[in-house]
Design a protein around this nucleic acid. Structure first.
Lengths: 230, 230
DNA sequence: ACCTGAACACCGTTCAAGT
DNA sequence: ACCTGAACACCGTTCAAGT
């Protein structure tokens, strides 16, 4: 909020930091070059000396958040624990910066894999390689993990956002109510799972999902690697 | 392309059809109310009599595409085959209308589940219920499947788009080359999977990924349901 | 009631002019 | 070289005026 009075020169890093602050406060729609230049106490044109346009700015902001989230302690933990740590790191990062979810999704939809999403893919894949998965499943396995992590974390963040500061339990109850009032012939599944939505822990359910995908990995790799079943 | 000369009255359905045509031709950035009204031989304001704004229009266009894709033959096939059919139906729909992937992702990121994404969740979940998965895993299992299907189908569509009409094999080779030229210490995983990217069938790999998630489902359900292992 | 299209309040981006 | 901020070419949306 404190509109700095250009104490030091404009840098790409300061611009990206300011962009993250604006995105956190006002979501993607709030990030305009006018708002951003005001926060930096300069004119809109100045930003273009350090960043080629809005697209690159969004990518850079996403990259900064993801890089921080992927920075693990580094002590050689078991690969399965590292996958958990990476997944939860991204979960929390997206929880803090909900706009990152849509940004990563758009980045993935735009191209095969670039920038931040490429880094995530590599970080997850490196652990998958050591989990006893047959080599020909490495890629599919890792992308499945990536999609689950981004999808579930994004949905969690969206649910928190829409609460508007409400009690989390109240939001879950409202959602559960909505699902239970759907027509029974058309939505048997959503009605069936509505109850279990009413009380669950978000992070716990997220980790359970990661384990489910890892179970698929273990099952498809069982023929080769034998058991880490226990 | 044929700018009709308002033979019949403007309807919501005609507007949505025209929007889909524009999106298919010019991607999301090409859908403006000016372009759309020109295609419909009217003024921009006319559209607002049938649709509340651009957001609703995008949702309606997505809904139309997804509804068509989810419309299965209906003969009671095995649930596993039906999941395959649903997944491939979405895969092909997103292949034909690449903008749908980003739209569904945004829809999921915006809210817990609405409109088109809610329908997909229900369609997949109904089959998951009959696959012997323990009840407490229904929701996580189905969302994992949903995220994989949307993520993988979207990425496939993006890869096709970026080819610009090039030979598919050439695109894969170029991507494989790019991955292989990444620094070895930083990207051991992507370098390891680059080779298998060079020649693979897109739909085949997609189905293999669906099976991987289904394997996770089978593994976590094994304790309860016994084997459809074969 | 539905349509029309000019007008309004924005936006990203550019660029002459300053330092 | 970096910054400034007015100006340009758009955009979604509104609304008086028409039929």
């Amino acid at each position: 909020m404190a509109t700095r009075k250009r104490t030091d020169a404009l840098t790409r890093a300061r611009i990206v930091d300011a962009a993250i602050a604006v995105l956190d406060a006002d979501e993607e729609a709030g990030l305009t070059f006018r708002a951003l230049s005001q926060a930096l106490a300069t004119g809109p044109g100045a930003i273009y000396h350090h960043v080629s346009g809005k697209g690159e700015l969004l990518d850079a902001a996403t990259e900064a958040v993801v890089t921080a989230a992927l920075d693990l302690p580094g002590g050689g933990a078991a690969p399965r624990e590292e996958v958990h740590a990476l997944a939860l790191g991204l979960f929390d990062a997206i929880d803090d910066h909900p706009w990152v979810a849509a940004q990563l999704a758009a980045q993935l939809a735009r191209t095969s894999a670039h920038g931040a999403s490429l880094r995530i893919l590599e970080a997850l894949g490196r652990r998958v390689m050591t989990l006893g998965v047959p080599r020909e499943h490495w890629f599919t396995t890792t992308t499945a993990l990536l999609y689950y992590v981004l999808g579930a974390a994004g949905q969690n963040a969206a649910a928190r956002e829409s609460s508007g500061g409400d009690d989390r339990a109240a939001v879950l109850a409202r959602e559960a109510d909505a699902w239970e009032s759907l027509p029974a012939e058309d939505f048997p599944f959503l009605r069936a799972v509505a109850a279990q939505m009413r009380d669950h822990d978000d992070r716990e359910q997220f980790t359970a999902g990661v384990d489910l995908v890892l179970a698929g990995i273990a099952a498809s790799g069982a023929r080769v690697s034998g058991g880490s079943a226990r």
